Simulated assay, not measured.
Amino acid sequence: MLNKKQQRLRRARQTRVRIALQRKARLTVFRSNLHIYASLISADNAKVLATASTAEKAVREAVGGKGGNVAAAQAVGKAIAEKAKAAGVEAVAFDRAGYAFHGRVKALAEAAREAGLKF
C-alpha cells in the first residue's frame, strides 16, 4: 500500500514523462503546509534557471509573512514569471508534481500566466 507522498510521486512521474517529450523548460511546484516553491528547470533537466518561494525575503514581505495561502502562491507565480523572463524563457511546461490543479497550485499557475509565461 502506498502512502500519500508515494502516490503523489507516482502521479508526478507519469506527468514528467509527457513533459520530457515537449522539450521545453519545466516550471515545477512544491507545496508544503507553510510555504510554496516554484523552480524553472532547463529543457534537458541539467540546471535550475530560476526559483521563487514564500521563503524568500522579498516575497515574504509582499504577503505579510503568511506563506501557506492562495495570496502567497499568487505572489510566487508572479515572481517566477518575472525571473523566467529575465532568464530569457517565454514558454514552459507546467509540472504540478502530482498535486491537484486546485487551490494554491492553481493560483500560482494563473498568476504566472497573467505575468506573461506561456503554458
Rank of each mutant, 00 (worst) to 15 (best):
E110C: 04
G64H: 08
A109L: 01
Y37H: 13
R31S: 05
G64V: 09
A111P: 07
V59L: 00
F119G: 06
V59E: 00
V29M: 14
A79C: 00
K85Y: 12
A115I: 11
I80K: 04
A46P: 03
A62I: 04
R26E: 08
I41D: 07
A112M: 06
R23A: 14
G67A: 00
I80E: 04
Q14N: 12
S53M: 00
A58Q: 12
V17A: 15
L9M: 12
Q22T: 06
I41Y: 12
G64M: 05
A73L: 11
A58R: 13
K85T: 14
L21R: 13
K57H: 10
R113Y: 00
H35M: 12
E56R: 15
G64T: 05
A109E: 00
V76I: 07
G98E: 00
G65A: 05
L21W: 03
A115S: 07
I80N: 02
A79N: 01
K83I: 04
N3P: 15
V92E: 00
A20S: 02
L108A: 08
A111I: 11
V29I: 15
M1Q: 15
A38C: 10
H102E: 02
A112I: 09
I19D: 00
G77A: 05
G88I: 13
D44G: 12
I41E: 08
G88M: 09
A81N: 02
A112T: 09
A109C: 01
F101R: 10
Q22R: 11
R16V: 14
A58T: 11
G64A: 06
Q7V: 14
V59G: 00
S42K: 06
K118N: 03
Q22V: 01
A87S: 02
L9T: 11
A81Q: 01
R18N: 04
A58N: 11
D44H: 14
R31M: 04
A46W: 09
G88C: 09
V92K: 00
N3V: 15
E61S: 11
Q74M: 09
K4L: 08
A112V: 10
E110K: 05
R31P: 04
G103H: 13
S53I: 01
L40D: 01
S42I: 05
R26T: 06
L108M: 08
E114L: 08
R23D: 10
L49Q: 07
L9S: 08
A62S: 07
A75W: 02
D95L: 12
A50G: 03
A84K: 03
V63D: 02
A62V: 04
R10H: 09
M1D: 13
L40K: 00
E110V: 06
V48C: 12
I80H: 04
L21A: 08
R23M: 11
E114N: 06
R23H: 14
